[in-house]
Amino acid sequence: MKAIYSLILVLALVVIATLGAGAAKMQTIFAYCVPGTAFAIFVIGFVAKVIGWAKRPVPFRIPTTGGQQQSLDWIVQNKWDNPSTGPQTAMRMLLEVLTFRSLFRNTKVLLKHDDGKNPIVAYVSAKWLWLFALLFHYSFLVIVVRHMRLFLQPVPQFIVAVEFVDSVLQIYTPIVYQTNLLILAGAGFLLARRLLDAKLRYISLVNDYFPLILILSIALSGMYMRYIAKVDVMAIKDVVMGLTTFKFKAVPASIDVSFFVHISLVSTLLAYFPFSKLMHFGGVFLSPTRNLPNDTRMHHHENPWNNPDIKPHSYEAYEDEFREPMFEAGLPLEKTPEEAA
């Protein structure tokens, strides 16, 4: 049901863009106003959200330690999973952000039997989620980088290189980028999991289905433009360059309506991004269980709101209460009962 709501929402967006730019001839609005506004919302929203997080204090250093701590010299520290210095923590973060290390950890233990029928413990990985999440995110990144060619003149060598590698298989005309297929596979898997796995269906919300369906639709509309509508890329680049340099020109009539669908969906994604779970992209860098070294026995960490008025029940109060029996038991005292009296 939640997935259907999300699908309806995305289809509504497609219809609006098709009708708006196609039938109602509001190309200018859909080419300039919508993406421009969406981009502004994205940037401002993203920055505001990150600032909102960053200005909140981190009162305690609470890394989740995933390996041996730094202790005695002869005990080997697991520096990547239990860092105690800045560079080690940076390494942990890099592995986390670039390779999704925590998801990779998702191993399962299995009891198997060897040939002699003795039980042995074996490990199988439950790495599908990791693999498809990685495919999805990296495809997304490559696709974003490839699209940068529309925003930059001249096109940097780096982008050309990415395009070359991405199309290295040289199949179909126009040449198919592998990432187009991979992102469909990745997003498709992530969506299928949510729909088919009862456990995930139970925990999933509209907030989970909507972005996945939206991204799938963006990918599909993009592929439609390239492989079926075979849109006029140079005309589109003119429009995009106009948008980025604030030199707005009349929208050429040669641009297929699919472009407006695509750009409306992208705009929706941009505008939706800062208010959604997609902010995990920014949040992962600030997560206090990952981005701090496990070093508070070595170095002081300051809590800005540490309340100096919270004090332990004092020894004086304790001795006052129990002085007599302590004295009788021969425990050392600050004041003997006579002195206290």
């Binding site: 399962k108 233990v109 299995l110 009891l111 796995d197 009862a198 456990k199 269906r201 139970y202």
Partner: peptide, 14 residues
């Protein structure tokens, strides 16, 4: 039901 799903697909002892 959601527990069944988890327990059905994973038959590992540990």
């Amino acid at each position: 039901p959601e527990t069944q799903a988890v327990w059905k697909e994973n038959r590992e002892r540990f």
